[in-house]
Amino acid sequence: MEEYSVNRAKSEPKNGSMQATVIAEMRRRIIKGDIEPGAPLSELALADEFGVSRTPVREALKQLQTEGLVEIRPRVGTFVTIPSRREITELFEMKELIEGAAARLLAQRGRVPEIDLLERNLREADEAVERDDRERYAELVHEFHDLLVAGADNTKLQAHYRMLMNQLAYARLVMTSLSQPGRATQSDREHHLVLELILAKDGDSAEQVMREHVRASRRALLAGLPISGRHAGSGVASN
């Protein structure tokens, strides 16, 4: 996603494009974890930062609420969403369905460009696991899942997947599941198996193994969450 500096934001027209800029930038900050879960968001402060009136900021926050990234509490304020364990479980159930379907669809397509990119991704992932570089491996995990969905070549599936990943704040949350002992190594093996089945054009098995992989990621994720059932911004997501 393109990043917008504040200076660039201020130089753009104060119209619908400015509202889109605020949405994109705030979405990016929340997903990356630049703004912590539960943090309050001030319309006035954001309007001042972006050099606009409060109206485009208010509309941007409404859109982010629709996407599940912020919570607007009447007469209280606006806050970055903190998903509960139940909400995370439900989101992962949907993630399992979407990514399982993506694996099946990709297996039916043959040697498309995404296959080469997935093979390169796994080579780099193997190296990251060998170095115990969890930060780099987390980036490659994100890329693997994005490539899988892109390779399915289904725009509706991709749209639902992107909104789902935004609600999970994927980039911010992936490290919690990887912090579980042995999870990075097992995750890497699961990715390899999924791709082997895709290359074999075994759509049924590719879907099954992909769904099992997402379930394993969910178990690792929930094992790293606080007992209270609300995460505190320390990162959890499918890997």
Results as ranks from 00 to 15, higher is better:
93 E>A: 13
28 R>L: 14
161 Y>V: 08
27 R>C: 09
63 Q>K: 13
186 Q>L: 14
194 V>K: 11
110 G>N: 04
83 P>M: 11
202 D>F: 03
53 S>V: 07
132 D>M: 12
115 I>H: 06
137 Y>F: 15
221 L>M: 13
162 R>Y: 07
232 A>I: 15
110 G>E: 02
182 G>M: 09
57 V>D: 07
212 E>Y: 06
47 A>M: 05
190 E>H: 15
219 R>P: 00
162 R>M: 10
74 P>V: 11
15 N>K: 14
66 T>R: 15
40 P>L: 01
151 G>P: 04
92 F>R: 04
230 R>V: 12
4 Y>C: 10
220 A>P: 00
164 L>T: 03
135 E>N: 03
19 Q>H: 07
57 V>G: 07
197 L>C: 06
167 Q>G: 05
42 S>V: 04
172 R>I: 06
103 A>M: 08
14 K>F: 02
101 A>R: 14
91 L>Y: 01
49 E>L: 15
22 V>G: 08
174 V>Q: 07
63 Q>C: 01
62 K>V: 11
15 N>H: 07
115 I>C: 08
64 L>I: 07
59 E>K: 13
117 L>F: 06
178 L>C: 09
41 L>S: 05
152 A>H: 08
228 S>W: 14
136 R>V: 11
126 D>T: 14
175 M>E: 04
226 P>C: 11
106 L>T: 05
147 L>V: 07
49 E>N: 05
189 R>A: 09
155 T>W: 09
27 R>P: 00
16 G>H: 07
227 I>C: 04
4 Y>L: 15
73 R>K: 15
120 R>F: 07
4 Y>V: 15
189 R>S: 02
14 K>A: 12
196 E>M: 13
186 Q>P: 05
178 L>E: 01
2 E>H: 01
124 E>M: 15
136 R>K: 10
76 V>P: 01
220 A>M: 08
102 A>Q: 00
162 R>L: 11
43 E>W: 04
18 M>S: 13
134 R>G: 10
24 A>D: 08
191 H>I: 06
230 R>N: 03
48 D>H: 11
129 V>F: 01
206 A>H: 02
130 E>T: 08
174 V>C: 05
116 D>G: 13
98 I>L: 15
58 R>S: 11
204 D>M: 02
76 V>I: 13
176 T>S: 12
17 S>N: 14
61 L>V: 03
51 G>V: 00
9 A>L: 10
86 R>K: 13
5 S>L: 06
97 L>G: 03
192 H>L: 09
142 H>K: 14
152 A>G: 05
80 V>L: 12
98 I>H: 06
159 A>H: 12
162 R>A: 07
129 V>G: 02
218 R>N: 01
52 V>P: 06
122 L>A: 03
74 P>A: 12
234 S>C: 05
231 H>P: 14
238 S>Y: 07
141 V>L: 08
166 N>K: 13
237 A>F: 03
164 L>N: 05
53 S>H: 02
49 E>Y: 01
222 L>F: 10
10 K>C: 01
64 L>H: 04
239 N>E: 08
196 E>D: 14
148 L>Y: 05
153 D>W: 01
90 E>G: 09
30 I>G: 05
21 T>K: 11
168 L>G: 04
124 E>W: 11
194 V>D: 06
113 P>C: 09
34 D>A: 15
105 L>C: 07
134 R>F: 08
227 I>M: 13
